[in-house]
Computed example of a mutant assay.
Amino acid sequence: MTPLTHPAGSAGFRPPVIVCAGDEFISADLLARALEGAGVEAEFRRIDSRWPTEPFAAFDGVREAAGDPARLAELVRGADALVTHLAPLTADVLAAGGLRVVGVTRGGPVNVDVPAATAAGTLVVHLPGRNLGAVAEFCVGTMICAMRGLPSAAIRLASGHWDAGGFRYERTGLELRAATVGLVGLGAVGLRVAELLRAFGSTVLAHDPYASAEAAERVGVRLVELPELLSGSDVVSVHARLTPETKQMVDAAALAAMRPGAVLVNTARGELVDTRAVDAALESGHLRAAVLDVFDPEPPAPDDPLLRRPNVFATPHLAGASRQVAEESAARIAAEVATVLSGGAPTNCVNPEVLDAGAAP
């Protein structure tokens, strides 16, 4: 591909025009500073949505997006690149711009109409595993909280009740060093969780038909079939990708197969778990506790009975929220976009056929 830019001051130098479409987590200013830090000299156009103060939504052909497509279409006219977290890159927006590259600070760029981008000759680069550190720490931390009954103890104390009964043997929970943890999915996040659990001394099982045996061995994980994982784990943590085959894979039958008194953790996708079956398993006492950071739908109904259970640790999709995720995502996507603008090939691209077309004679 022909480089767009040349060193400043050289003949024919034209700074690229880059739209930075941010939000209240990864702002347009943060994206622009990251691009400057990557050595990109550009004319920046900035816009910020009000996510997460205002929820994201689905637009024409895209989902989990935030911002005004019409305003975005105005900004991309004449631009060479766009860098964003959640901006709605619909077919109309892409058609308005003639963008060379779109950089999305997410593992899955669901806010981009990828077929439309490909048809327009626009590369879409993204960041697989961008929040794996934050999610992995969240998983391990909440496992400890759920096994030890800490959320309900904290709620009772805040309401004025000193509950020393947590020292009764039958109410005490396991330490991680004594626990067997089953990971349903051993991708980037699952591997990082396994690394952290290894430091605690946990026994770790994993089920993933696509997992690398070498990677599993490296982090001390034993790969097993799902029934063995469910029956043999004190904690089951879900890290699978959402596909038609994995939708509601943790259903009533899977929960019944789990060890009595086990803990369920889901930070992946709400659609992977049948929450009504989880509610029933908690009501019967078969499950000790559940950690739920994702729901189907999001947000869940305010009167959802699952949220009111004292043995449910429910959070509003916060596992990936950290300053490191925001800052490092901006820096990584800036480096990818800088590579493309200088004529190189990005590391992570969802439509590499655009690269192939550009290289054709």
Rank of each mutant, 00 (worst) to 15 (best):
P3Y: 15
P3I: 14
L4D: 12
T5H: 11
H6N: 08
A8Q: 12
G9N: 14
S10V: 05
G12Y: 07
G12L: 10
F13R: 15
R14T: 15
P16A: 15
G22Y: 09
F25T: 11
S27R: 13
A28W: 06
A32I: 10
L35H: 12
A38N: 10
E43P: 04
F44E: 13
I47M: 14
S49E: 12
S49K: 11
R50F: 07
P55I: 15
G61C: 11
R63H: 13
A65S: 15
G67H: 10
V76L: 10
R77Y: 05
R77G: 14
A79R: 13
D80S: 09
H85Q: 13
L89E: 03
A91C: 09
A91S: 15
G98D: 08
R100I: 05
V104P: 03
G108L: 12
P109N: 10
V114L: 09
V124T: 04
G129I: 07
E137I: 01
G141I: 02
G141M: 07
C145K: 10
A146C: 06
M147C: 05
P151C: 13
S152Q: 13
R156V: 01
S159P: 01
G165V: 05
G165R: 12
L174M: 08
L191T: 14
A194T: 02
E195Y: 00
L197W: 05
L197A: 12
R198H: 08
G201R: 03
L205G: 08
L205H: 05
A206M: 05
P209K: 11
E214L: 12
E214D: 15
A215G: 01
A215R: 15
V219S: 12
L223Q: 09
L226I: 11
L230T: 12
D234T: 12
V236R: 04
A240K: 06
R241S: 14
L242S: 09
L242M: 03
E245N: 11
A252N: 11
A252Y: 03
A254H: 00
A256M: 03
V263C: 05
L264E: 02
L264M: 00
N266S: 07
A268R: 00
G270E: 09
E271A: 15
T275M: 06
R276E: 00
L282W: 00
E283Q: 01
E283P: 00
L287E: 01
A290E: 01
V291P: 01
P297G: 13
E298R: 01
E298G: 04
P299Y: 08
P300C: 06
D304P: 00
T315Y: 02
G320N: 09
V325H: 02
A326E: 09
A326V: 00
E327M: 11
E328K: 05
A330Q: 04
A331Q: 13
I333E: 02
I333Q: 05
A334Q: 08
A335L: 08
V337P: 06
A359C: 06
P361Y: 10
